[in-house]
């Protein structure tokens, strides 16, 4: 098995347009796989990262052409932290709506579960302040030893 270094990082920057989140998803998956994460965890991370990028594009950058989404992935030797940053046209509250039952009953729109999904898929996540006013969503995943 590939023995990951003590620390390592990659940075990505994409146009703030729907569809480009797939490029981030593949790059992050490839990085996590190299670091020795189990396939199942890599799949969870892919979904979480896609949701975070979609939020950045749709909400933080309000689907404005010409803006960017920046993604940094830092491995510290035991965990991977992925930060997704937009340019903060709209601030997010970070409020997670847990109304899954309501949505299943059709009493609420099916969209808007991105943050809830992220909280379920990664080991820790939250919002950080950014110096340039953008929203920064961080997601951490610890690496469990492979069976």
């Amino acid at each position: 098995m590939y023995d990951p270094p003590v620390s390592s990082s990659i940075d990505l920057s994409i146009p703030s347009e729907l569809g480009y989140e797939r490029v981030v998803r593949e790059a992050v998956a490839s990085f996590a796989h190299r670091l020795g994460f189990a396939t199942e965890r890599v799949e969870d991370l892919k979904t979480a990262v896609s949701e975070a990028c979609l939020n950045a594009i749709e909400h933080g950058n309000a689907q404005t052409p010409g803006l960017r989404v920046d993604v940094t992935c830092v491995w510290d030797g035991s965990g991977l932290t992925v930060c997704v940053q937009d340019q903060g046209l709209r601030p997010y509250s970070g409020h997670v709506t847990p109304g899954i039952e309501q949505r299943l009953r059709g009493d609420a729109p099916p969209r808007g579960l991105g943050l809830y999904l992220i909280t379920q898929l990664v080991d820790a996540c939250g919002f950080k302040l950014s110096s340039n006013g953008g929203n920064v969503l961080y997601m951490c995943m610890r690496r469990c030893p492979r069976a």
């Binding site: 990659i10 940075d11 797939r22 490029v23 490839s30 190299r34």
Partner: peptide, 21 residues
Amino acid sequence: VELHLPSRLGYEKVAMDAAAS
């Protein structure tokens, strides 16, 4: 799309997967 990688063999795979996508 921009990607910054460490200078370590093996990380080319990250760029290959992103570019292929």
